[in-house]
Amino acid sequence: MDITSTTTQGATSAATKRSLRSARKGGRAQLSGLSRQRIRTAWLFLLPMIAGLGFVAGWPLLRTIYLGFTDATLSSIDSYAFVGFENYLVYDNGEWYGLLADGLWWQAVWNTLYLTVLSVSIETVLGVLIALILHAKFPGRGLVRAAILIPWAIPTVVSAKMWGWMLHDQFGIINDLFLKLHLISEPIAWTVNPDTVLGTIIAVDVWKTTPFMALLTLAALQMLPKDCYEAARVDGIHPVKVFFKVTLPLIKPALVVAVVFRMLDALRIFDLVYILTSNSEDTIVMSVYARQALIDFQQIGYGSAASTLLFLLVFGLTLAYIFATRLKLDGSGDH
């Protein structure tokens, strides 16, 4: 059973049964020469993909993990020594050194998690609200649906520059508008001030990624059966109650997938932070920390160790998610 069957409801069980049935059929047919030849061709067709992924993704990943245990530097990337866990943690002359002893690394971890949790929560709520608006019928709906794709399509670099300009302390329109509305009494240097900078990054990230959330939610809304809404309307149940009692439970599986995807995406955030606040320690995230060590400080070994930890975090979350959805599937019995 693959991931597909864990996410959509009605259509899935049919698809699963179908694939089970054809798997059985395939098992029987395996005896025939034609089918064996088919499987050989299948592997041939898969070869370019497997080779590509193995060579350009799998191998570099293994190398990164390995380099994390060495003292490689950018200038001497070909000659290095194995140093065990020294990049992670080492006790030397009464002091702890290494990644796990570096306050800035923990700052980066904290910032990444803080940003992920806040950003994904806000955009989930906002995304569902927008999806509900777009699900209603109104003139010009197609245009509005297209318009909300604009933030999604804008390159992150462009969106970072654009917001950097709008948040400018002297000429930015955000300060101008907020001053006119008397929300603030003096201009704020949004991307420099330690109190506002992380919130600013979250706001820009939410702006850019909410469309994704809204569209996925909208797709889920469009698959809902109409009859239970008719029934609710006939019974005169308040729409808000209908939303929490009927709609939300029904779209929850799709919402969970979208949240997980966005979380994994937010954990590796790089472009936005790098452009908007460059190497500021207030906003440093795990990807920025790792790249800074790798390229700016040229410490391939140390940076690889940081990259490995980020990978482990993402990998662990993915495994936990797959495990959780499978458990739920097993628990929910036949349907």
């Binding site: 059973m1 693959d2 991931i3 054809s22 798997a23 395939g26 098992g27 088919r38 499987i39 061709t41 299948a42 592997w43 898969l46 993909m49 497997i50 992924l53 350009v56 993704a57 799998g58 191998w59 570099p60 990943l61 293994l62 190398r63 990164t64 380099l67 490689a72 990337i77 994994l264 954990l267 590796r268 790089f270 795990m286 990807s287 790792a290 790249r291 790798l294 391939i300 940076g303 690889s304 990259s307 490995t308 980020l310 990978f311 993402v314 990998f315 993915t318 797959i322």
Partner: peptide, 29 residues
């Protein structure tokens, strides 16, 4: 085509899309 290890392969492929870019940066460099 139905063959053994198909689901594992699909999950692995999906796993690659979860890679943080920085995790392969030094190896890819």
């Amino acid at each position: 085509v139905h063959f053994r290890g198909r689901t594992t392969l699909l999950l692995t492929v999906l796993g690659v899309s979860m890679f943080p870019q920085v995790a392969v940066l030094s190896g890819m460099f």
